[in-house]
Amino acid sequence: MLSIVLKGDLRHEDNLGNVMITNFGGVQRMSAGTGVVHTEHNPSETEDVSLQLWFEPEQRGLTPSYKATRFNLLLFAF
């Protein structure tokens, strides 16, 4: 799963110990692999807009993983 924050904040928390608040320009990548329990929500009172993409894995049984990074999304600002 890939989440791209276009406006506001997105909070991710999972049973692997990952806790992250990502805002505009932030991208989160999570692979559920053999299994993960997670939640995502807007942690603030301001409006949030996120794009979430789900992909079918080529291989089953991979180790669950999570990563967050930032990109310059000024071209996509609205």
Rank of each mutant, 00 (worst) to 15 (best):
V36I: 15
R29A: 10
L51H: 09
D48I: 00
P57W: 01
T34I: 05
K7A: 07
P64Q: 04
G17P: 03
F78H: 10
F24R: 12
I4E: 03
H12S: 07
T69H: 02
S31H: 09
G33R: 02
G25W: 01
L10H: 09
P57T: 03
G8N: 05
L51F: 11
M20S: 12
L75A: 13
L74D: 15
M1V: 11
I21H: 06
F71K: 14
L73D: 14
D9M: 02
G17S: 04
G61W: 08
V5N: 01
E40V: 11
E58I: 10
L73V: 12
R29I: 10
S3A: 13
L16C: 02
P43R: 10
E40C: 01
F71A: 15
W54F: 15
N18P: 00
N72T: 09
V27T: 06
L73R: 10
S65R: 09
H38G: 06
G35S: 04
L74H: 07
S31N: 13
F76Y: 13
Q28R: 10
S65D: 12
M1L: 12
Q28H: 04
F76Q: 11
L6T: 05
K7S: 06
N42R: 06
G26N: 06
L74R: 13
G33T: 05
Y66M: 01
Q28I: 14
M1K: 13
S50L: 08
F55S: 10
D14Y: 00
L16G: 02
N42H: 04
A77S: 13
V5A: 04
Q52W: 02
